[in-house]
Design a protein around this nucleic acid. Sequence first.
DNA 1: AAAACGGGGGC
DNA 2: GCCCCAGTTTT
Length: 211
Amino acid sequence: MENHGKAEKILEILAQSYGTEPWNWHTRRNPFRVLIGTVLSHRTRDEMTDAAAQAVLARYPDAASLADAPLADLQDLVRTVNFYKRKAARIKEIGRILVERHGGRVPDAMEDLLALPGVGRKTAACVLVYGFRKPAVPVDTHVHRISNRLGLVETQRPEATERALQQMLPEKWLLLVNELLVKHGQTVCRPRHPLCSRCPVRRYCHGASGH
DNA sequence: AAAACGGGGGC
DNA sequence: GCCCCAGTTTT
């Protein structure tokens, strides 16, 4: 209610500050690309992830080819991302499961996505909203922290933040809320030592430090 | 609820 | 050298 308008206002300001350019593996409505790119991105800076994701997807553009990829080649292609050995095995296994259980395609149900190795709610939400344009909110540590700091939610668990944001936000913002809050979280509203004096939405913020 | 996983870039 | 990072899984 009160927060509906507030959330939208905040996102409008952040969109002006940071732009609305989507992350590159989100640019196509391709659930497979979104899935693989997002799994590779876990706990890894996006500039490290991008080249790896592009390389994998260029050589293995679908589930069937990924399932048959040599593990050593996958490891080599994704060597720049964090947890690369585990992730190489995971995306190969994801390919195998997609072929075996889903006809080689990415499922569009949260429950099916969560059954894939290395896929939690955040990754599943990315696939749903970026890949399928279905309503979902990817909540990572930035989104959770900033939503609380701004007083949009008062939640302990990310899943509660996810539900609240999805209810609060008009559909047009679902594609952008994650990227805008992540960008804000990386540059200004950092986990420690936030740069509140430079914050474009500080007048909405409950947790501003140093006034 | 907290720890483990696990590695390269930036300061 | 130390600290950080678009999470997920396991204890």
